[in-house]
Every structure is written in structure tokens, then in C-alpha cells.
């Protein structure tokens, strides 16, 4: 009985994962090897969709970077999405880390209340939060009317909304709480006696931060980085609502391929390539920072 109880306990989660993740992913992979002609899907196995993504051609210039592809749209959007997502992730970590530090080291009473307060934004739907940014940054939105009322500007600023910066601001705000919690947990776990010992041995406040707190918080920080970076690359709701004509990301292309362009197999191929590129980047990143060593040290 003991031997079977474990798998049985895992079964519900496993079934949900199989039905809701593995099966659709399998379908997506299968779909990406088919082709669409008009209203029909041709079910013969082919690599045509993948070839189309990498097929060389005359270079298309985008922001000074040449993309030597016959169909450069996926490549350009992938690079653009990665850049936007990396910037947003960096911003999230920069804002979230001090918040987590404050929570772990400065807050003594009512920690639970602080943590609940952090999650307050999640009591509203993601869509509404994105929409609120539209109201904040809009032409007659909060920022503009505030500045006009203060007499700082005479005319509303129209560069606040409908551009990549608006997308990054919105993404940063939306994902902060996801980053604060893992960083907080790893900061909270730090043995305070290490800091005392370092202080006794004459380390300054900065030296302690650099040599003890930062390295020991890395597992949480790295987890937070991945938690924010991976889902934001493929986001399409945010660019659609606040990105205007310049904020298109790769997720928007996948959505367009599945709907308007009526080319689901190509959409599937673009999503698979996107997932592979993200996975490769994450592996390179983890290797570069020596994740294994870090885990071992934090666990010790």
C-alpha cells in the first residue's frame, strides 16, 4: 500500500498536467508539421513552416540590425520581444529586490499583513490592471491632467501611451509581486549570525550586502527573474492594449497567425521556435551564473 500511495497522491496533479499542458503542447508540435492551404489543413508531414522561419533572403533592416531572412517577421519580433521582456525583467528585479529586503530585514511585526498588501493588485484581473495603465498614461489620463493642473505642461504629452515604453511600464508593474515573494523567501532564510559574524570581523554595511546578502539571495532572485522573463516574452494582451502600432510582440504574431491570417500551423511553428529560444536562453543564463553551485551553497 505504501508503494502505491505516492503515485496515487501525484495522480490528480499528473492528470491535470497531462490533459491541460502535455496534450495541447503535443497537439501544437503536431500542428506545426502540417500546412494550411486556404481553408484546408494539409496533414502531410513537412518542415516547411520551420524552413520558412529560417529561410535566408535579402536582409531586412530593423533598427540598424540586418535580418537576412526571406520572411523576417518572426525573427524581428522575437528579438524585439526578448529585448522588451529583458528590460521589463531588469526593472522588476531592481524594484522588487529592495521591497523584499525591507520585508525580510526591517519589518518586525505584522509581516503577514505586509505580504497580503503586496498581493492586493492581484485582487483585480490582469486585464483591468492593464486598462488602468491606459487611463493613467492616456492623453487626458491621470499623469497628463495632473501635470496640466500643476501648470507644468500646457498641452497633454502624447508620448506616454502606445509605445514600447508603455508596454514595459505595464509589464513591470504587473509582475512585481511575483518577484518580491521568491526574493523575500530567500532573504528570510539567510542565517542572521553570518551577518553578525561579518560585522564582528569588521565588514562594513556594503561589504556585508555584497558578500553575504546578495549572494545568498541569488536563488530567489534568479527564480524571480525566470518567473517574470519567461511569461512576458510571449505576452500579447499588454502590447495589444497599450502598445499602439509600435508595441507589437511575438505573441501578437502568434495570435494573428492563428486568427486573422488563418495559418494555425505557421502559428504553431512560431510558438515552438519561441519556446525553444526561451529555453535555450534560460539554460545559457543558468549555466553562466553557476546555478548548481549556488543551489548547493544556499542549501548548505
Amino acid at each position: 500500500m505504501r508503494r502505491t500511495a505516492g503515485p496515487a497522491l501525484l495522480a490528480p496533479a499528473f492528470l491535470v498536467m497531462a490533459a491541460a499542458l502535455a496534450a495541447p503542447l503535443g497537439a501544437l508540435v503536431l500542428l506545426s508539421f502540417w500546412t494550411q492551404t486556404g481553408f484546408e489543413i494539409d496533414r502531410t508531414f513537412t518542415l516547411a513552416n520551420y524552413w520558412r522561419i529560417v529561410e535566408p533572403g535579402p536582409p531586412t533592416w530593423w533598427n540598424g540590425i540586418p535580418f537576412p531572412f526571406a520572411y523576417p517577421v518572426p525573427a524581428i519580433l522575437l528579438v524585439k520581444s526578448l529585448a522588451m521582456s529583458l528590460t521589463a525583467t531588469a526593472a522588476v528585479i531592481l524594484v522588487a529586490w529592495p521591497m523584499a529586503y525591507f520585508l525580510a530585514f526591517r519589518v518586525r511585526r505584522g509581516k503577514a499583513a505586509w505580504i497580503i498588501l503586496l498581493t492586493v493588485p492581484f485582487w483585480t484581473s490582469y486585464l483591468l490592471r492593464v486598462f488602468s495603465w491606459k487611463i493613467v498614461l492616456g492623453y487626458n489620463g491621470a499623469v497628463n491632467s495632473g501635470l496640466i493642473a500643476l501648470g507644468v505642461i500646457g498641452e497633454p504629452l502624447d508620448f506616454l501611451l502606445y509605445n514600447p515604453v508603455a508596454v514595459m511600464i505595464t509589464l513591470t508593474h504587473s509582475w512585481i509581486a511575483f518577484a518580491v515573494l521568491p526574493i523575500y523567501v530567500s532573504l528570510e532564510k539567510i542565517d542572521r549570525s553570518l551577518l553578525e559574524a561579518a560585522a564582528d570581523l569588521g565588514d562594513s554595511r556594503w561589504a556585508r550586502l555584497r558578500r553575504i546578502t546578495l549572494p545568498l539571495s541569488m536563488p530567489g532572485t534568479v527564480a524571480a527573474t525566470l518567473l517574470v522573463f519567461i511569461p512576458t516574452v510571449g505576452d500579447y494582451v499588454t502590447p495589444t492594449l497599450v502598445g499602439g502600432t509600435q508595441g507589437t510582440m511575438i505573441g501578437s504574431l502568434v495570435q494573428q497567425l492563428f486568427t486573422r491570417q488563418d495559418n494555425a500551423p505557421m502559428g504553431a511553428a512560431v510558438s515552438i521556435v519561441m519556446m525553444l529560444v526561451i529555453a535555450a536562453l534560460v539554460l545559457v543564463f543558468l549555466r553562466a551564473i553557476g546555478w548548481r553551485r549556488m543551489r548547493a551553497r544556499a542549501g548548505a
Binding site: 531586412t60 530593423w62 523576417p72 517577421v73 524581428i76 519580433l77 502600432t245 509600435q246 507589437t248 501578437s252 504574431l253 494573428q256 497567425l257 486573422r260 491570417q261
Partner: peptide, 8 residues
């Protein structure tokens, strides 16, 4: 049309 928008 999709490509034009994407390449903006």
C-alpha cells in the same frame, strides 16, 4: 497586413 503591422 499582419506583416506590415509587425514590422513597425
Amino acid at each position: 497586413w499582419s506583416d506590415v503591422k509587425a514590422l513597425r
